[in-house]
Design a protein around this nucleic acid. Structure first.
Lengths: 129, 129
DNA sequence: TTACCACTTGGAGCAAACTCCAGCGCAAGC
DNA sequence: GCTTGCGCTGGAGTTTGCTCCAAGTGGTAA
């Protein structure tokens, strides 16, 4: 799979894909006549990274996790602990966002009521005149 | 209320408070002998901003919203529309994060199973020897 | 053969949101 | 009156995560 296909498929830029490879988030992608040729292995990695990034995990943390992965089975527990910590963070963030969402809901509703009452005023004014 | 008290109360730095004021997210805070003296009005604003920021609303958007607020009632609908759009964004983000959380759960569980089976192996090896 | 195109590299640049700093001012307490 | 502490300002610096660019290469099509 070419870089443009991967870029299209995941909706991220080619630059970002190369950037991830450069910093070691993706292992060196095999090349065909100088061009990257992404395989299943790479696609899986990319999909994992994007999922985690979308949840807000910092690149630093993903790097650490992937570095540990490369060191084999003996790091399984450390990796698990990273995931557990990150899950906690994500859950906390979700809660915060739900709070904010409630506040937004409330405010939106207040504006709605405001507009309704304004409309009534106009109706009344129209009738009066 | 002094800036250090506000900083403490909301868990944000004094620098950030001054920064928010500088860019107009908070209106000029009244001063007592050259020092900021935060009142209820300011605290409410700060609490709103922090809530929205924690949900990921960009400062740009908050600035726009607050600018509209300053222009009075005639901007009510525009403001409401901003809130509606942002609520959509937040909800989408929450969904993404919940997806990621699921993936994390799954992975954590996989590591757990892995560790269990490793433990078993050790038990067996111990027994065999 | 030449033109074109997608792709390569290393490095610079950028946007957002802070964060830090130097140098100053004021007010209280010793 | 002097020091200590808190706060002030304007401006520079930092971090994160990309994004853009110039110059070069290799395969393909006219």
């Amino acid at each position: 799979m070419t870089i443009s296909e991967v870029s299209e498929r995941f909706g991220i830029s080619q630059d970002t894909l190369r950037y991830y490879e450069r910093i070691g988030l993706i292992d060196a992608v095999p090349k065909k006549s100088g061009r990257r040729d992404y395989g299943e292995r790479e696609l899986d990695r990319i999909s994992f990274i994007l999922c985690m990034r979308s949840a807000g995990l910092p690149i630093e943390v993903l790097l650490e996790y992937i570095d540990l992965s490369r060191q084999g089975d003996k790091t399984a527990e450390a990796r698990r602990n990273i995931l557990i910590e990150q899950r906690e963070r994500v859950q906390e963030k979700i809660k915060e966002m739900q709070e904010a969402c409630k506040k937004l809901d409330y405010k939106i509703d207040v504006y709605y009521t405001k507009m309704l009452s304004k409309e009534k005023e106009i109706m009344k004014a129209t009738k009066d005149s």
